[in-house]
Nucleic acid binder design. Structure first.
Lengths: 126, 126
DNA sequence: CTGGATCCAAAGAGATACTG
DNA sequence: CAGTATCTCTTTGGATCCAG
């Protein structure tokens, strides 16, 4: 299926991709998008392998980009939660699609670096 | 909108995200997905800022993952073209959605690092 | 509890030169 | 034309310690 003249030369895909893809970024967005507002610690719990520093960095970038909203209650101890902004919710459909593909590929036995078992390697078949 | 129990703790999102997101990877997929089979040089032309090494690396990884198919004609000079595999085409909808978001945000004046002009910074407004 | 600051190791990206 | 090989430089990510 063709999308007339939709190639990325001078199209706005690249800056947006830099903002929403990348290690952990998409996972954070998926969690916020599917689970609703989450506290810092809750996000940590959902992603056991992320470090606090990286999570902080990603959330700051996403906030600067107007994609997530940070809300802090000035209590002690502090309570900070994050949620998608109005604009950030534009990503919901894309994230859903990505999630569906992930589920499908997982069910088909896809593994990173080895592809799909039923179709081992196109070039190895010749 | 909630997606019951769809958080990423022990869901297959992460490996798939590592395979299809990342610098240049998504852009390559979008080009192949929207333009059809493309030769190595044509991909270079669509992404003026990528280097041959990085493009080669990404294409190899995508091929190993069963997402793109590499076809080489044993002529001189060689002619190699790349296209989405059957499985790779699963990503089409997600890429379309991402492209639409990119177009929308661009039209709204979104800029990386500054967010949306109409909504400068949620915290700066207080 | 939610980070900020710092240091360090590892991965990634670019430039250049070379090949079938 | 379509890469490979090598080198360097930058960027990232993880660990640790500290603080409001």
């Amino acid at each position: 299926m063709k999308v007339k003249g939709a190639s990325c030369i001078s199209c706005p895909m690249d800056p947006v991709l830099k903002a929403v893809t990348g290690r952990w970024t998409t996972t954070i967005l998926w969690n916020l998008s599917s689970e609703g507002p989450l506290r810092f610690g809750a996000l940590m719990g959902l992603m056991p392998e992320i470090s606090a520093k990286v999570l902080t960095d990603r959330l700051k970038m996403l906030e600067r980009n107007g994609i997530v909203l940070r809300t802090q209650k000035p209590t002690i101890p502090p309570e900070v939660s994050y949620e998608m902004t109005e604009h950030g919710r534009d990503l919901h459909q894309a994230l859903r699609s990505l999630h569906e593909v992930a589920l499908k590929w997982d069910a088909e036995g896809w593994k990173p670096g080895e592809g799909f078992p039923e179709d081992p390697l196109p070039r190895a078949a010749e």
